[in-house]
């Protein structure tokens, strides 16, 4: 038992647990045919949370190790500039279509989730944590830290949204008879960030490129739009 206490307090231990669990979850996802229901991130979260609860470990203790992974989200956000730059020629040509589609989608995402949340009488902090749910996690966490929700709640909700977007998209594309890969990809990247982008790449490279673009644009625009929208809706 002393042995356990010693290791459980070491940051290295939780770093290794996170890596191993994620590798296991990725393998599980691959063997189940890559369904968004069993997304490796969601499986990893479930396993690690259960493990921490069973062993009576506090999140703060876990995070002392996991923070080294978490830290990389910052440079990863900066790195989004690379795919954006790769598609810069196309963006320049289509900038108006992309901008209008992105603003409409991003504002719809924010306003619709807040309206449904308000209808259910959710507390303000929960609403603020829900607001950036379509934005890739590192940006969503940053936004929520700024506007005053729970960053860790927001991060989890973003991930659940990503899985939902992938699940719902085939239905939506069928309903609207969307066949164009560019439209599919852009829509997935906007509503379901990195999860949607990974999913779009499985359809076609064109869809994937537009999804990556939409993810970057939505993150950027939401960071600027969200504070304006919530003050217009009277949250602060």
């Amino acid at each position: 038992m002393e042995f356990w206490v010693y290791f459980a307090a070491k940051p290295l231990f939780w770093l290794i647990v996170t890596l191993i669990v994620f590798m296991f979850a990725s393998e599980l996802n691959r063997r189940s045919g890559g369904t968004p229901l069993l997304h490796p991130v969601l499986i990893s979260m479930a396993i690690i949370i259960s493990f921490l609860l069973v062993t009576g470990t506090r999140y703060e203790t876990y995070f002392e190790g996991a923070q080294f992974i978490h830290f990389l989200l910052g440079p990863a956000t900066v790195a989004l500039a690379v795919p954006l730059f790769d598609h810069f020629e196309r963006i320049k040509k289509m900038w108006f279509v992309l901008l209008v589609a992105c603003i409409s989608g991003a504002v719809t995402a924010i306003v619709s989730v807040l309206l449904v949340g308000l209808a259910f009488d959710l507390p303000v902090e929960v609403l603020l944590s829900l607001a950036p749910k379509s934005v890739t996690s590192p940006i969503a966490i940053g936004i929520v830290e700024k506007i005053g929700g729970y960053p860790s709640l927001a991060a989890g909700l973003v991930l659940i949204t990503g899985a939902m977007g992938c699940l719902l998209s085939p239905l939506v594309f069928k309903l609207l008879n969307v066949k164009d890969g560019a439209v599919k990809g852009f829509t997935l990247g906007l509503a379901a960030h990195g999860f949607g982008t990974a999913y779009a790449f499985e359809t076609s490279a064109l869809a994937g490129a537009f999804a990556g673009l939409a993810m970057g644009m939505t993150g950027l625009l939401t960071a600027f739009l969200l504070p304006v929208v919530i003050s217009l809706m009277g949250f602060n």
Binding site: Y62, S137, L159
Partner: peptide, 16 residues
């Protein structure tokens, strides 16, 4: 990128 989300996602446990 997906892997980097995990530590923050585990933070959901604080809000269970």
């Amino acid at each position: 990128l997906a892997f980097l989300y995990v530590p923050a996602g585990v933070g959901l446990m604080v809000h269970l």
